[in-house]
Design a protein around this nucleic acid. Structure first.
Lengths: 207, 207
DNA sequence: ACGGACCCTAAGCGCTTGCTCAGGTTCGGG
DNA sequence: CCCGAACCTGAGCAAGCGCTTAGGGTCCGT
């Protein structure tokens, strides 16, 4: 597999961020934001983690908020990519839903540092940037809702409230970013598998 | 029903906080923390919402962190109370689990302002205060795990991974605080009902 | 050898932060 | 009518914030 110009959700995490100094700052910001939260993180802390002086940050980014926006934008793009890949993967609705949950959860667990920033620091974005991100989340919702809707029509699923169940499924997956811990007893793969099973039970017509 | 000295999860929200000036400040802090987050909220903002000068805050609380701790402590106590009431309510494991989810979710929806602070600003607490709160959350976990465990033993439930499913159930409920909106199309009762049904499907032995 | 593009830093500006403190207001009991 | 306790405010301090600016290395093509 080539490492150049990848747009998938996993490999070479921040490869598209250039030049290298800008990437180092962005990675440092992800770590700091995830650890302490956006508002509790200082620009001096970010620059320090990247091994630079506080002023260096402003050569590559106009403001601290722009850093958050870049992180949030790239993160949402990747999470959405993962979801859409599963949705377009073919198979029955159950197979596609299971794969969507499995990979979406795996992303939130494996990359829980990024995911935490992406999912929980949304309010710190400015008006314009936030609406841009909210649109991406609307699309995630649409992807899951479509799979569930198709499963219902095909008679595979029995779901009284499709929008409500969609909300619950996404909520369940997203919250993984909050509690997942690398020192915990479960690998991202195991959590993905567990959750895929639970979600299938939530929508299954019968067993 | 008397309004004096209540300790349940709903009525007379912050009645046990006295004197009245201290309660006004605490309510103002809950609103501010929920809206902007702990770190983005200034002591001037809190005092202003309570109609006092910045200095007044420090007559009733030693630090801004003490305010967060009081909120977090009381909130966790109430949420736990709601859970335990449902768990001790009698009936089959399915009935108790459904009631636990229903009331826990209802609490997180109805009082989502408080719940947001309680569930998402934990990291802003100091070392000692945080470990105190984490203990309360461990007890919430134990309550749900016990119900599910008993359901499995009674043959009512079929759950391959009890700790994992417990985690998922609680995660689902807690995340309600993040997305619930009073202008949304669902009442707290409706969300509670929906979620209770979904959780029962996750654990049911057969249908 | 040298000019200039690029990238970075030291220093610091103006402002806001959490918090303090001396002093004023209010009010019930004697 | 005065006292003392309870409660609150105006003014402000030291520290830390996001961000700016003047200037200095480094390395390229020529």
């Amino acid at each position: 597999m080539s490492t150049a110009e990848e747009t998938d959700g996993d490999s070479a995490p921040w490869a598209e961020v250039t030049p290298e100094a800008a990437r180092r700052l962005l990675v440092a910001a992800v770590d700091a934001f995830a650890e302490r939260g956006y508002h509790a993180t200082t620009t001096r802390d970010i620059a320090g983690r990247a091994g630079m002086s506080p002023a260096a940050l402003y050569i590559h980014y106009k403001t601290k908020e722009e850093l958050l926006h870049r992180i949030s934008r790239i993160g949402h793009d990747r999470a959405l990519f993962v979801l859409e890949a599963a949705a377009d993967g073919g198979g029955t609705a159950a197979e596609r839903l299971a794969e969507a949950v499995r990979s979406f959860v795996r992303w939130h667990a494996e990359r829980h540092t990024t995911a935490r920033v992406v999912q929980y620091e949304l309010d710190a974005l400015g008006e314009e940037h936030r609406t841009e991100i909210v649109e991406l989340r609307r699309r995630s919702d649409a992807v899951v809702r479509r799979i569930i809707g198709e499963g219902v029509q095909a008679g595979e699923f029995d779901v009284p409230d499709v929008p409500g169940t969609t909300l619950a499924v996404l909520s369940l997956c997203i919250d993984v970013a909050r509690w997942f811990n690398e020192q915990g007893s479960r690998t991202p793969d195991e959590v993905g598998e567990l959750y895929a099973g639970l979600v299938l039970r939530m929508v299954a017509a019968e067993r």
